[in-house]
Design a binder for these strands. Structure first.
Lengths: 356, 356
DNA sequence: GTTAGCACTCTCGTAGTGAGAGTGCTAGAT
DNA sequence: ATCTAGCACTCTCACTACGAGAGTGCTAAC
C-alpha cells in the first residue's frame, strides 16, 4: 500500500494540512484551495506555505487537482490514511442509539432487516445495504407443510435465526392435512439444528442407499423434504435510500446517475462487494481500488458483518461517494452491526440445540 | 371532456394527420414538423397544407408547440383520442404470450407477483408496478403457529390466494408445540374462508361477550389469533424497472430525474393512482389530468385489475412518459392482467369453500 | 523556513453570431 | 374553393470570444 510506505514522509504539519483538506472537502464537495486551509485551518501559516506542502502531498499521491489551477481533492490513499490514523470517530449520539435499538427490537427477522437498511440510509444520508444469508446456509428451526389445493402444498421453512422462506411444491398424490403435520413434526425433530444444505445432501444419500427397503410413508417424507428444502439458494439484498444519491453534487449529470443506478441494480455484484467487508471482525472500508463500483464511480463502501453467537450471518453497510463523513459513518455502521446481531440473538435465542 | 365535444370537428384528414403526428412523436420524442408529416405520412399533401391543419389542431387543444417555430407535440387530449378511437392495438406476439404464461405458472404468490412486475417492465421498457392486496382484506386459508424461543411464537398466515405473511408474537406463557398445533388447526377450521378483517372483529366481539365464562384454552387461542391476524394492514407494492427511465430522453436533466424518483418512492401514492384503474373492468389509462405524477411529470399510467374468480385482488400496470407505445402496451397490460388472474386461480383454486 | 507578490492558467458565465429548422402568411396555381 | 410555392420571421442550438475570478507556481525578499 502506498500510504504505508509514504508514512514516514509525512511530518506533523503535513498531516495536519492533509486532514484539513479532507475535512473541508467532505463538507464542501469542492476542490480545496490553499487559501481556505490557511484561513480556516488550525495552522497559522500563509497560503503560500500551505501551497508548498500541498504540492508535496500531491506528489506523494494524497491529493490531486481536477485541472491546473483548481484546488485539490483527496485521493483514495488520503482517505485510507485519514481513516487509519487521523480521524476522530464521533460516537453515535445517545438519541440515535436509542432510535436504532428501538427500531430493531421487535418484529420478525424480515422486518428487522428492512428496518436495518432503512436506518443505515436514514442516519448516514447514504445508500444503506443489508445482505441476508442464503437460506440454504442457515440452520433449520422448523418446517411446516400447509395444503393449498389438490396436490399443491405450501412449504414454510424457518431458520433458527428467524428467516422465513416458502415455496409451493407439488406432491405425487393428495395428502391429508394430518399426514402433512406428521411429516412436518418428524422433519423438524430430526433435522432441526442442521443447515439446509447438509439436510439436502443427507436426504439425497439416504434416498440412494435405502431406495429398496423404504416404505411409502418415508419415501413421501423424503420427497417432500427434498423439494421443500431447496428454497433460497441465493442471499437476499436490501437496498435503501438510492434516491439520496440524487441530491449529491457528484451525481449532477445524467450519464453518471445512470451508470450508478445500473451498478446498484446488479444485486449479485453488491453482495460480492459487501462480502469483502466481513474479514477481520470490525468495520472495513473499501475505497477506489477494489471494484468497478468503487473505482469507476468514486464510491466508497463501509461495511461490517453481523452474526448470531459466533456464526456470521450476513453483511451490512453503506455505499456512497468517497467524500463521506467517515467520522460519523464508521461508528454508525459498527453500532448497527452490533445492535443487529444482538437483536437477532435476543429474538431467536434458545430453541433446539445447535448440533452442527 | 374536451375530446368528446370537439369530436365532430375533426375531419377524416384532420384525424389522419393527428394520428401521424402522435405516432411519429412516440417514436422520435421530438416535436413533429409539418414537413415530416408531409413526407412520411399517408396523405399526399404539401407541408403548407399540413401546417394549416396542424394550426387548427393546436387551436382545438390536441397539439402544442414547445416554442414558436418548433414542431408540434401531442397533448393529453390527443393521446386520449388516439387511444379511444384511432389506435390499432397490436396483439401480444405469441412468443411473448408463452414467455408470460411460462413465467407466471410456477411458484408461490409472492414469486408470481415479483415475476409479473418484472415482466411488465421488461416487455414494455417502462416501469412495471404490481399492487398486492392488503393481507387484512384477503380470505384466510390457513394459519400456523411455530414456537421460536421462550414465549415467542411465529405466526404464519396464508390467504386463500396464496399470499403469505408472518409475524412474531409474544404469548403470556410458554406454550408447547402440541398446543400450538391444536390452536392452528382449530383456527384454520373455524375461520378459513373469512377475511382477516372479519375474523378480527368477530374475535373482538367474542372476547367482550364471553369474557366471564371463557376457559383458559379458549382465551389463549383468541389472544393468539388476535395478535397473529393483525398482519398486513397496508397493500404491498412492487416496482420494477425504474432504471429504464434513465435512458428516456424526457429525463435528461437531473432535476427531473430527482422529482420522478421521489414520486416513485411514495408507495402509498402509487397505490392510490393505480387503484384509479380498477373501475370498469378493462384497462384504464391515466394521462395528464389525474394526479401529480401524471400531470407534473407528463407521465401516463396504464393499469388494470387482477382478480381470482369474481373477487378483485389488486392492480397492476405500467408507468412512463406519456409518449409511449400504447398500441403495444395496452394489449400487454390487458394480457398480463388476465394471465395473472388465471395463474393465481390455477395454483390456488379449491381449498376450503368460500363462505364469505 | 516563511511569506508577499506576481505572472500564468484554467474554468465559467455571458454575449454575440450564424446556421438550421420550422412556422405563418400571402399570392398565385389548380 | 382548395392547395401549394415562396418568403419573411422566429426560435434554438452550437460555436466563439472574452473578461472576471479563483487558484496555482515561482521567485525574491524577510
Amino acid at each position: 500500500m502506498t500510504d504505508l510506505r509514504d508514512h514516514g514522509k509525512l511530518s506533523a504539519r503535513d498531516r495536519e494540512i492533509l486532514k484539513d483538506v479532507i475535512l473541508t472537502y467532505i463538507l464542501s464537495a469542492e476542490p480545496v484551495s490553499s487559501r481556505s486551509v490557511a484561513k480556516h485551518g488550525k495552522l497559522d501559516l500563509s497560503a503560500a506555505s500551505i501551497r508548498n506542502v500541498m504540492a508535496d502531498l500531491e506528489e506523494w499521491g494524497y491529493l490531486m487537482q481536477p485541472h491546473t489551477s483548481a484546488g485539490r481533492v483527496p485521493t483514495a490513499a488520503a482517505y485510507h490514511l485519514f481513516i487509519g490514523s487521523m480521524m476522530e470517530a464521533r460516537a453515535v449520539p445517545a438519541k440515535e442509539r436509542r432510535y436504532i435499538q428501538e427500531s430493531l427490537k421487535t418484529g420478525g427477522a424480515d422486518e428487522i432487516m428492512g428496518n436495518a437498511s432503512h436506518l443505515l440510509s436514514e442516519l448516514s444520508s447514504q445508500v444503506g445495504i443489508v445482505v441476508t444469508p442464503a437460506m440454504g446456509e442457515t440452520v433449520l428451526k422448523a418446517v411446516d407443510f400447509i395444503p393449498i389445493s389438490g396436490r399443491k402444498v405450501l412449504c414454510v421453512v424457518v431458520s433458527s435465526t428467524g428467516f422465513i422462506d416458502n415455496k409451493v411444491i407439488e406432491t405425487e398424490e393428495e395428502l391429508p392435512r394430518e399426514e402433512l403435520v406428521r411429516i412436518s413434526n418428524y422433519l423438524t425433530d430430526s433435522f432441526g439444528g442442521h443447515t439446509l444444505r447438509e439436510i439436502r445432501e443427507r436426504l439425497l444419500r439416504q434416498m440412494v442407499e435405502e431406495r429398496a427397503q423404504m416404505d411409502r410413508v418415508l419415501a413421501r417424507t423424503i420427497e417432500l423434504a427434498r423439494s421443500g428444502f431447496s428454497v433460497g439458494e441465493v442471499p437476499g439484498v436490501r437496498v435503501d435510500g438510492t434516491s439520496m444519491l440524487l441530491s449529491k453534487p457528484e451525481l449532477s449529470d445524467v450519464q453518471r446517475v445512470r451508470r450508478t443506478f445500473e451498478a446498484f441494480a446488479d444485486k449479485a455484484r453488491l453482495v460480492k462487494i459487501l462480502n469483502q467487508c466481513i474479514q477481520g471482525g470490525g468495520v472495513r472500508v473499501l475505497i477506489g481500488e477494489d471494484s468497478e463500483l468503487t473505482s469507476e464511480l468514486d464510491f466508497s463502501v463501509v461495511g461490517t458483518a453481523y452474526s448470531v453467537g459466533d456464526r456470521p450471518l450476513g453483511t451490512l453497510g453503506i455505499v456512497g461517494p468517497s467524500r463521506m463523513d467517515y467520522e460519523k459513518i464508521i461508528p454508525l455502521v459498527t453500532f448497527l452491526g452490533e445492535t443487529l446481531s444482538q437483536a437477532l440473538a435476543e429474538t431467536f435465542s434458545g430453541g433446539p440445540p445447535d448440533r452442527r
